[in-house]
Design a protein around this nucleic acid. Structure first.
Lengths: 335, 335
DNA sequence: CTGAAAGCGCTTACAG
DNA sequence: CTGAAAGCGCTTACAG
């Protein structure tokens, strides 16, 4: 037997479909008795309102879409977890489209979500204001994560990479390692750029006389290894190395160990992200932790707010703090 | 201006809405010229068919739902990636609901997906045949992942934990370590049970005289550490330890190292899963790798097949192989 | 090939 | 409080 519709419930409860609708939504405008009868009938028939019909008439899907790039394992799952938990708490469904690298792919994905979602969460280095204008109706609420977009038209939620980097570099310097080298991330990467700026700012402030020492990297373990080799070849070796992410720090660590350089005695080392591996390498890696679950949660909550009241017409740019995690690799006391 | 509807396109192209519909879907039953005119009009108006209206009339959502428990980082992201890629390739959307632990939570999630999805992918230790019967219409195609459900009513796709465990234990024994101990996973866990059975089978076959040596564990690093301590206290120590997952192997490794036991010289060690950490501990951990992306991909493809042809009324039970990854911790030559 | 019309299952003014 | 009716945007027999 096919699924019960509102008509079946109406017949069963001997009322009109209008009353069924009213009783089952909110319940105002129906006597308690009628409402009770209707509910009973609905239960008996195992009635579940047809989602599509409801979307069509109410223009609400109760679904939010998440557009994500091809992401690193832990980051991805934590982010989704945060979004998912917050969405569930608000009765929203989550439509996911991940592993997008090209801009064209992202455009297709975004367009195909049209009409299926009430709002969009977008994390993508490729998505800028022009992209949004071209591919999305202006009315659709959007929250951008970790985005360089500065246009006040759009809501943005960023991780405070800058402050995290500043804090870590300051920590290294205060531990007595003035000559801090930095292993940079990929060219155009937004996070990478902010972390580098944090390094520069902290050096300027806390060790103005020490030379800047920036090595190229691309977030891969191998590029960290190469940077480590380069460091070893420098006439004056740094006292500490801060890598723009953990994987590069791990690669660098391998290079240092191979060369017999002791970490942290000879060179202190720190990364960024606090991936699970960080605590399992020897020595355990100091790093900057981003509460990714919170990033997802806050982003969803912001978006949900936009769905409720479109009044907040003026877009906001929020920032989420990060914290330093001190382990053995930077020579300070272990936590 | 509000989004264009099929009516707007019809007016613009000076045809009926029926023709617009035909031209835009498949295009049969319209002359090439008309079709062209309609397409042009649709483009001009940036027409995107309303998803909900289409779902309502076609009874197809082109969306599949994924119900997942609270999962370990890497596993979760790889699984979603596999599902997502395969879904996109087939033009299907992906509705995700994760982080469910309780059975009641899962029931709510599954019911709320009703009418929003054409089929369901379910990974959950808690979901059995009774659950499905109670919470899902019989017509809804479902594929169960890593499930103990044996009911021929349901389609199941499992990782071949048994074969993986057998292969690893056989490898350890053939490397000369007849006395292999096993650190078990949580009581009711399906994967854990199969891995244990694999250990038992391989021991019976390849080292029938060696004693079985099974220690309790719960998949946590700490339980692996405890098991390691227990092993060290045994009068006759094993020559090799096979942990039911990598995290326990890592915990066990810590215990062995603390006690000055050399791995692999004194005791060889192996895990299961090939989590990223496995290759970063010292010595690098031998393990059994599951191609999780494939698990997701195959599951989605199976489900998609069910959506096309409901003819395959007889449910299938597929199995996905895994492979041994030999690293330093088991004393064989390094790969 | 093309169009008028019915209908998918719901919600919501509008009367009573 | 309750019901009859219109309408959300689409697809699909049914005629022509």
């Amino acid at each position: 037997m096919a699924a019960a519709t509102i008509k079946d419930v109406a017949r069963e409860a001997k009322v009109s479909v209008a009353s069924v609708s009213r009783a089952l939504n909110g319940g105002s405008g129906v006597t308690a008795a009628t409402s009770e009868r209707i509910r009973a009938a609905a239960d008996r028939l195992q009635y579940i309102p047809h989602a599509a019909a409801r979307m069509l008439i109410t223009r609400r899907t109760h679904t939010i879409g998440a557009l994500l790039p091809d992401l690193y394992g832990e980051f991805f799952s934590e982010l989704i977890r945060g979004i998912d938990l917050a969405a569930r708490a608000r009765g929203l469904h989550l439509l996911v489209s991940s592993s997008h690298d090209g801009v064209e792919e992202a455009a297709v994905a975004v367009r195909s979500m049209q009409g299926r979602v009430d709002g969009l969460l977008i994390l993508s280095g490729r998505v800028d204001a022009a992209f949004l204008r071209a591919n999305l109706p202006r009315e659709l609420p959007v929250v951008l994560l970790n985005s360089a977009v500065k246009n006040p038209m759009y809501h943005v939620l960023n991780v405070d990479n800058h402050a995290g980097a500043v804090a870590m570099v300051a920590h290294l310097i205060q531990a007595g390692h003035a000559r801090v080298a930095f292993i940079a991330g990929p060219e155009g990467n937004f996070d990478a750029r902010q972390r580098e700026q944090g390094y520069r700012a902290a050096m300027a402030k806390h060790a103005p006389k020490a030379p800047l020492n920036i090595l190229a990297g691309d977030f891969s373990e191998e590029s960290g290894y190469r940077a480590g080799r380069e460091l070893l070849a420098q006439k004056v070796r740094p006292r500490a190395v801060f890598a723009a992410n953990d994987m590069m720090a791990v690669g660098c660590l391998t290079a240092l160990k191979e060369a017999g350089v002791r970490v942290p005695q000879d060179i202190a080392l720190a990364g960024f992200d606090d991936i699970p591996i960080a605590r399992y390498v020897t020595p355990a890696l100091s790093t900057v932790r981003v509460r990714i679950v919170d990033l997802g949660r806050v982003a969803l909550e912001h978006l949900a707010g936009l769905l409720e009241g479109p009044d907040s017409s003026t877009a906001s740019a929020q920032t989420l703090g990060c914290e330093i995690v001190v382990r053995e690799s930077c020579g300070a006391s272990v936590t």
